[in-house]
Design a protein around this nucleic acid. Structure first.
Lengths: 212, 212
DNA sequence: CGGTATCCCCTTCGATACTG
DNA sequence: CAGTATCGAAGGGGATACCG
């Protein structure tokens, strides 16, 4: 990216991460952890492979990511965030929280991945009953599934399926994610075709954090 | 900007503010308050006027800014942030805090404006002695001057000059800003040619906030 | 699997000039 | 002051091909 040529920390930050796709690559590395070229490509539908390749080089040059050979069983290159790259988490959180206001708009052709749903509860909600019993929520949207675990006042998420869930949500991404982030209520989610089974009261424990 | 086509709040946020110059325009409106086309252009050295014009239209369309006729004495159009636009402040704060790490690199041709210096103390430091006496710091860099006021545990800044200051800092932007944000110490600032006069102990009250 | 390399097309950007 | 008009240059997107 061409430098803005301004002695301002916001402008200098954008000199580094302001290019198209750059922050989304950081997002994937943050959500997926160290991963391969193909994993990144899967998490970034729409990017051209040559552009991903170029951006990875630029990010490495800027010191935001490291490139290392994985141990024997894998035998491939792994990309991972450096400390400077990890330090972008607050930026992505703030951006993601601000962006929630646009998630109600329907765009049928948008791609969807489980990890984009999984970060929402950990980043944008808190347990309203931190001393309550452990609880597990299974969410399924667009064939992608994730597990939300409330444990010890903390909200963890991971991809995949749970063996036993207190609550199961299944439906369109807009319905599931809207409900999880508190943008819509159960009734509205129902109108969007959400299917709910299990102990619905667990949902009350996901309290949206306010911006700022 | 072409949409990323991803149902993810970070991607949707970037669909709106990911274009080149967009976040810097928001920065100026946040730092300067409602202002005219020319004020924006002055705060955005390097932008082409047609591009500024285009971006303002896009931002208005997206609902981030409003365009209104100023009252009689001014008789011009004023651009201002809407609530959605103002809500970007945490994003700019996070980005600016992250970007501080790049402010030590010297780039002699970078432009500089007082308002880019003024936001640093309010956003990135806190008063280490909130119950201490009021204090006023006058900073001058590159011909641009600002005033930092410590009052009631809060740190305010404004452009311009103070009538009476407890401490006066004058020097290159890197020296002044580095010192204010805690990136460098007084000795290092001195080596960069900073001139300090007044009660230096006031500086100790500017405590850098840690990222996160 | 993990990329690199090209090509083409189109959009965007930036610079400059110009106008009410 | 507040933009619009124009134009060349660069960058991004998509497809496809290729290679260790």
């Amino acid at each position: 990216m061409r430098s803005y040529g301004q002695y301002c920390s916001i402008a200098r930050a954008l000199d580094v991460v302001g290019d198209r796709w750059t922050l989304l690559i950081v997002r994937e590395l943050l959500l997926q952890g160290p991963c391969r070229f193909t994993d990144l490509r899967n998490g970034l539908p729409g990017i051209a492979s040559n552009l991903l390749s170029t951006r990875l080089k630029e990010l490495e040059e800027a010191g935001l990511i490291t490139r290392e050979d994985a141990p024997p069983p894998v035998a491939t290159v792994l990309y991972a965030l450096s400390a400077d790259g990890l330090a972008l988490e607050p930026v992505l959180k703030a951006l993601g929280l601000w962006g929630l206001r646009f998630m109600t708009e329907e765009r049928p052709d948008d791609a969807f991945r489980a990890q984009w749903m999984a970060y929402a509860p950990t980043w944008f909600t808190e347990d309203a009953e931190p001393d309550g019993p452990d609880a597990v929520i299974q969410v399924v949207a667009d064939g992608e599934s994730a597990v939300i675990e409330l444990r010890g006042g903390r909200i963890h998420t991971r991809l995949g399926r749970a063996t036993e869930a207190d609550l199961v949500l299944e439906g369109a991404p807009r319905a599931v994610l809207g409900l999880l982030t508190g943008v819509i209520d159960l009734e509205a989610a129902g109108r969007l075709g959400l299917s709910v089974s299990g102990r619905r009261e667990v949902l009350g424990r996901l309290r949206p954090v306010t911006p700022g």
